[in-house]
Amino acid sequence: MSRLRVVVLNAGALLGVLCVLVAAALWVTGSRPLVVQSDSMAPEIHAGDLLLARSIPAADLEVGDVVSVVDGSGVRVTHRIIEVSESGAERIVRLRGDANAVADPDAYTLSRAERVTWVLPGVGSAAAFVDSTPGRVTAIGIVAGCWLAVVLPRRRAPLHARPRRRRGIAPVLVGAALLLPAVLPGARAWAIFDDTATVATAPLAAHRVVAQGQPQCRNEGGLFGVGEYVRLTWPHVDVRYEYRWEARHTATGEVVRSGVVQPAGGRPGELELRSSVLDLGLGATTYDVVVHARLRAAPSWEAAGTTTQVRTSAVLLGLGVRCA
């Protein structure tokens, strides 16, 4: 029983001194203790740590300070300042957790701020316990136990008991100093915890229209030069394509006729040019026939054109067209 009494008294004195010392230290320095809830400020601050924060004017804030603020929904956030801008005597800050890849979504307008000045690793769990109902019950229980230990009469020591060592208050105070971080009052801080992952696609590429091969020109039809015409033929290698053609007067560059050829699947591209198609000219007139491959789905997507020359000629009974 007396051993228990000693333990209870020593524990009570020790813890009591502790609480008073810490409360005094906090009051003197104006610090607020905060219990960290998550790892968003890792590696400097981890869940379970205790932070000591001091209230300072917002004008003293600098980028890099760790501050604890309460947002609009009443949740406390403790993160590092990444941006400060002035708004009169107030400051608008943007925060980001060290372990977070993105900044907090909201900016905070502050006239004063709690700036973190100390980190006590691992102390937060003890502080959270003290702040809880079982912790308070334990504390009150210890105090009650101490007073009971004083009030209740002690057993008389037997005559031939071992001599007791002298116990004083000094070892208790030393123990209190050593156990200083063990019991601290605290409030809670919440730091947003997030993770960011990035995925990139492989290259996405657009088509490039490929020019058709140079058309072959064949002279067709006619009898003794009458009603001759030419047929241009080229391979149709892509079902997505159609072919725009134009016939230009070689000397002037003037476009005299144009059109679009849409070969059926498997068929080559074909263009027939007759004298009724081309303008009447005096004598032999040369024309450039330019053919461009292009996408049916997007006619502005064209390839470079091929040029084939044809010539009209005046013959006895009418004009004909011949390959140049």
């Binding site: 009570g12 813890l15 504390a139 105090v143 004083v150 605290g186």
Partner: peptide
């Protein structure tokens, strides 16, 4: 013993402070 019991009252201060600050 009495001294230590008195010192233990500091726990009530601590508890009170904790509650207040929380």
């Amino acid at each position: 013993g009495l001294l230590r019991a008195v010192l233990s009252l500091g726990l009530l201060v601590g508890v009170g402070v904790s509650g207040t600050m929380a």
